[in-house]
Structures are given as structure tokens and as C-alpha cells.
Nucleic acid binder design. Sequence first.
DNA 1: CAACATTTGTACCGATAGGTATGAAAGAGG
DNA 2: CCTCTTTCATACCTATCGGTACAAATGTTG
Lengths: 193, 193
Amino acid sequence: MGRPRSFDIDRALDRALLVFWRKGYEGASLSDLTKAVGVNRPSLYAAFGDKEALFRKALDRYLKGPAAYTQEALREPTARAVVDRLLLGAADLNTARRNPGGCLMVQGALACGEAADSIRQELTACRAAGEVAMRRRFDRAKSEGDLPANVNPADLARYIAAVLYGMAVQAAGGASRSKLQRVVEMALRTLPM
Amino acid sequence: MGRPRSFDIDRALDRALLVFWRKGYEGASLSDLTKAVGVNRPSLYAAFGDKEALFRKALDRYLKGPAAYTQEALREPTARAVVDRLLLGAADLNTARRNPGGCLMVQGALACGEAADSIRQELTACRAAGEVAMRRRFDRAKSEGDLPANVNPADLARYIAAVLYGMAVQAAGGASRSKLQRVVEMALRTLPM
DNA sequence: CAACATTTGTACCGATAGGTATGAAAGAGG
DNA sequence: CCTCTTTCATACCTATCGGTACAAATGTTG
């Protein structure tokens, strides 16, 4: 009971996500956010908490929405298919017309002042978790005979992660989808599998 | 003539560079900068101009100092040696003890608010210029029979750039030098040359 | 030593940052 | 219809942002 909320909370989170995505955590001001969401400042605070909490919720929505393909990619049957889908999916996501270029986990807070440091750490941990998930998947692939014996799963995961991050940086700089796809091609061309 | 400046201008630039490198353009406040440089605010402004001008001068110093190895790398005799040196040099620079982790051209201003947008564009242009320089070097390599015919110099340059940026992101997250070196190994392992 | 040019330190500027106090508005439940 | 609970809009808070006015200090030059 009480006065009903006049905006959809998930739509609001989507709008906020786009602002954080484009401007990063530090570059996104409360004024930017309230303007994009179409809601007054106290309403934002009541619904999501402070800026940091709002970012964390937007990040969560990012991971479960635009970036959810990574989870599906890891369920592909072969290591090769996993890598294929991770990289091509990133090329798509990083350059999707309706989104800002790049990846929130990379450009959300790569280097920042003290105030944003806990967000930077959270994103760092997110990326590390992604690398761990890849390594686990490659561990499995190896036990399934899906990866050559001379390939270290952790090294492969780190390498794929580096290519993913590199594509995100290029997309943040305006690289087109086809250019990113050629990066993927180069990275895939001579993979040890 | 007039009262002599009480600080060394290049030392000051080095200090400012470290702050921008660690915190990015937006995250580095004037207070951070004056404190690190050990100079009062009006002195900083008199010596370098506003924050934007100071960043550009710090970037210039970065390119001519810590990042100067890239120019040398491009002068290596073979494409393979060029790539080798570029990647291993990046692993070193990104994780050098005395520097912040990562690369100023990547984390200086990857995503930011409007106030920092011209810096973002400058860094984007810097990265693009680096890719062009690599492409030119690979063009030459191809004319020298140093690259297989089926390798597109622009694609190779973009791919190497992506790996470089990816390593920078990982270093910004605290990746060790040996981990970056293993990324380099993976990237080099199966290069088409 | 005196005149001058420049830098230095202090103290301040308006604008904006993130965040909130407060009362009116809007429904749900009795 | 009246009460109660929650949200909404305005207006404001303090701290900090980038940037500067001004006068004392420090040399160089004649």
C-alpha cells in the first residue's frame, strides 16, 4: 500500500545502465542519470540507494541481460565452439547499435579516483571471475580430450580474455563490427585446437 | 628574468603523469595533481595551462618516455621481431613496479563525461595512430617478403593492437608480468609468420 | 641599490558533485 | 470518506570541482 511508483524499475535500470555504459561510473553524474531515467533524484535514491548501489544493480542487469550470452557460450559442447561464440558474441555486443560502444566491465571504471575505487575493484573481480569460468571450462575440455595436452587452460583463458578486453577498447574508440570480427578471425585462425 | 621557477618542470610533468596514469583524466583532481607535484595550484596553471593542457603534456611525455619503446620496436628488421618486441615491451611497461598498472592511452579516458570528451578523443586518435604505424610496418614487411601473402597487414595490426589493449586492461586489474608474458606467448605462438 | 619581471602562497570564485529534509500528492484499507 | 503509507517534486545541504585575483617574495638587469 501507499502511493504507487510512477515508473518501471527495470526500465529505469536499463536507462541508468546505458548512461554508466557510455560515461563510466565517474563520468555519469546524478543529473545525467535522473535525466536519462526521467525520475527525480529522491525517487532514484529511494528505489536503488546511492550511486554506488545503483551502479551495482545496473551491472547486475548488464550481466543478466546484454552480457548473458557469455553463460550460454560456456555451455557450448567444444572448447573451440566456446571460444568462437564468446568472441563473436563480444564483437556483436560491443558494437550493437542500440548500445554504447564497448563493454561495461572494461570501461565502467578502469582507472579512477578514490571515490570510485570500490566500483573499480568490483569490475576487476567481475573480469577475474569471467577468466576463472573460462579456465574451468577449458579444464573440462581438456579432460574430455577436447584440448591438446600442451595447452594450459589458465593461459588460454587469460589470452581469450585479453582479446575480449582489447576488442572492448577498440569498440569504445568506435571500431566497427566488421573490424572486430576480423580481430576475432585473427585470434581464432591459429588457435591450438 | 623575473623570479625563477622553484621546481623542475619535467619532474613536475613526471609526477603529474603518474597521477593521470593511476587515476585517469577524470579521476585525477587538481588537488591530487598539486599534491603529487608539490606545487601550488597557480604555479601549475602558469607552467602548463589548464587541466586539459597538463594532461596533453603528460601524454606527450608518456609517449616520448615510458612508451618510446614502441618506436624502437617498429624499427626491428622483421615483422616477427616487431611484434615480439611490441608485446613483450608492453608486458614490461604495463607491470613496471615504479608505474601504475596498465597503459595511459587505454585507461586515461576510455569512457567519461562530456568535460573529458576531448581527452577521450585524443587518446582514441593516439591508439588509432599506433595501429596505423603498425599497419605501415606490416605493409613494408609484406613488400619485403617478410609476411605471408594471405596476411592482411591492417588486420594483423588491429589484432596486435587488441592484444596490447587487452594486456593493459589486465594490468590495470593487477595482473602480474609473468601472466602478461604468458598472454604474449599465446598470441605469438601461432602467429602467421 | 633600485626598477622590473616573474613566481609564489593564500584566499577566494561560481558551478557542480552526491545526497537529503520536507510537505504535497496519490492511492489502498477500514 | 478518512486514515495511513508510500512516492513525488521542490528546494536545499555540504564538499569538492576546476580555475583565478592579488599581493608578497625572489630573483635578474641596468
